[in-house]
Design a protein around this nucleic acid. Structure first.
Length: 191
DNA sequence: TAGGCCATCTGGTCCT
DNA sequence: AGGACCAGATGGCCTA
């Protein structure tokens, strides 16, 4: 629980033990050389396939072996880039969520698990607050009130069935608020 | 130094 | 077929 905002890191990953200084790129841009990736591919896939596939091609003198390896490396690089972008998108979403959740601790960035847990309980406490304030009286038939209330009741019933007495106790609006405020407090203390 | 958190790579599986 | 998604592995950074 001691996460702090850090500059983008250049990971070394599976090839790190074989990486040379020139493999590192300070700006985090596409750092993997084809040769380095090929080493990685071999070392990883060899554990499952062994040298059989490549060896077979070589023995049979198939003409496209090197070219296929090259295109395979290219595909892997493109796949890695897409995966990086996907994770960046996911992290942007996490950051957006952090900025929306009210919390006390401002000197340290919330970790991902903290963000999710806090968000869940924040939503629950807001739902409970809305229901409490509405006092069972909802706006017109087209409004969100009845649906929200029905959804809330269903959730509570499911939790009561699954978790028994504890869930039933936590299903009270005060339970959500208490849980949320307790969590904020514990995060502030870094526990 | 250990433990927590994270970014990245990777191969498998699912989906369009 | 190709891309998205997922989970395991790995190693770097940071704090106590």
């Amino acid at each position: 629980m001691k996460t702090k905002a850090r500059p983008p890191r250049r990971r070394v990953g599976a090839q790190s033990t074989e990486a040379t200084p020139e493999d590192q790129t300070p700006d985090g841009a596409q750092p993997d050389s084809g040769a380095q990736l090929a080493r990685g591919l071999r070392s990883r896939t060899a554990q499952k396939q062994g040298p059989r596939a490549e060896g077979r091609r070589r023995r049979q003198g198939l003409p496209g072996a090197a070219g296929r390896r090259e295109s395979s490396v290219q595909r892997r690089l493109e796949s890695n880039e897409r995966e990086r972008q996907r994770m960046h998108t996911l992290n942007n979403a996490f950051q957006a969520l952090r900025e929306v959740i009210p919390h006390v601790r401002t000197d340290k960035k919330l970790s991902k698990i903290e963000t999710l847990t806090l968000a869940k309980n924040y939503i629950k406490s807001l739902t409970a607050t809305i229901l409490t304030m509405s006092s069972g009286r909802f706006p017109g038939l087209d409004g969100p009130g009845p649906k929200l209330y029905q959804h809330y009741q269903q959730q509570q019933q499911q939790q009561a069935v699954a978790g028994g007495a504890l869930a039933a106790a936590q299903s009270q609006p005060e339970g959500h608020l208490h849980k949320y405020s307790t969590q904020i407090h514990s995060f502030r203390e870094g526990s």
